[in-house]
């Protein structure tokens, strides 16, 4: 158990340090952890992502708490959440102290020029893998494919509202599994 606590801290500290670009940036890291340690299944992970989306609070924090909890109970959730803010905590304080020196962080803007496409590619690889796993015919059941196509319609209209997409998904799942 101590080893799991240590690994949890290490992996989530890495997320805090390297996940750049909004709440979904930690997704590729979570899938990496899933593959490496098998603490939870892929389906379980997608469920956790969905729940984190519709719970108040920053999505990144929600996902850390949830995955930590699933892996090692309440202590696990404390460790994962603490670890994800650990390094940013000190960097943020340092930045406030130095703010007047580095007000226009132009070389940081330079780094971000390539970091954002990289973050996008990381997420795209996860998106493609998930698509392949659950939507592509023959690799999964046809119900997922139908649901995916049907859900794309509300997505076109309510694209800024994750809650609605998730509610529609839940309803769609219940309805389609009746047949």
């Amino acid at each position: 158990m101590i080893k799991i606590y240590f690994l949890l801290f290490y992996e989530f500290m890495k997320i805090g340090l390297f996940a750049i670009g909004g709440g979904y940036a930690s997704l590729p890291f979570l899938f990496y952890i899933q593959q490496k340690y098998q603490w939870f299944g892929i389906d379980e992970l997608t469920n956790m992502i969905a729940v984190s989306n519709i719970t108040p609070g920053p999505i990144g924090i929600n996902m850390a708490t949830y995955t930590g909890y699933t892996t090692a109970g309440i202590i696990g959730s404390f460790i994962a959440t603490g670890a994800i803010v650990f390094i940013p905590f000190f960097i943020s304080i340092l930045m406030v102290k130095l703010i007047n020196k580095y007000k226009n962080c132009s070389f940081i803007a330079g780094i971000f020029l390539g970091l954002r496409p990289a973050a996008c590619a990381l997420l795209a690889s996860i998106g493609l893998k998930l698509l392949y796993k659950s939507v592509v015919p023959f690799s999964s059941n046809y119900k997922s494919l139908i649901l995916f196509i049907v859900l794309f319609i509300p997505f076109l209209y309510f694209k800024k509202n994750p809650l609605l997409i998730i509610v529609f998904g839940a309803l769609g799942g219940i309805i389609i599994n009746r047949f």
Binding site: G21, G22, Y24, L27, D43, T46, N47, I49, A50, N53, R116, P117, A119, C120, L123, A124, I126, G127, L130, L131, S134, V135, K143, S144, L147, F148, L151, F152, F155, K159, P162, I165, I166, F168, G169, A170, L171, G172, G173, I174, I176, N177, R178
Partner: peptide, 25 residues
């Protein structure tokens, strides 16, 4: 059953996010 559908929603959410970051960067 609901989570079966929600998993598809998550894929769509990920795709939307990819599109957003793509357009910006």
């Amino acid at each position: 059953d609901a989570f079966f559908g929600i998993r598809i929603s998550v894929i769509i959410l990920v795709l939307v996010t990819i599109k957003d970051i793509w357009q910006k960067s």
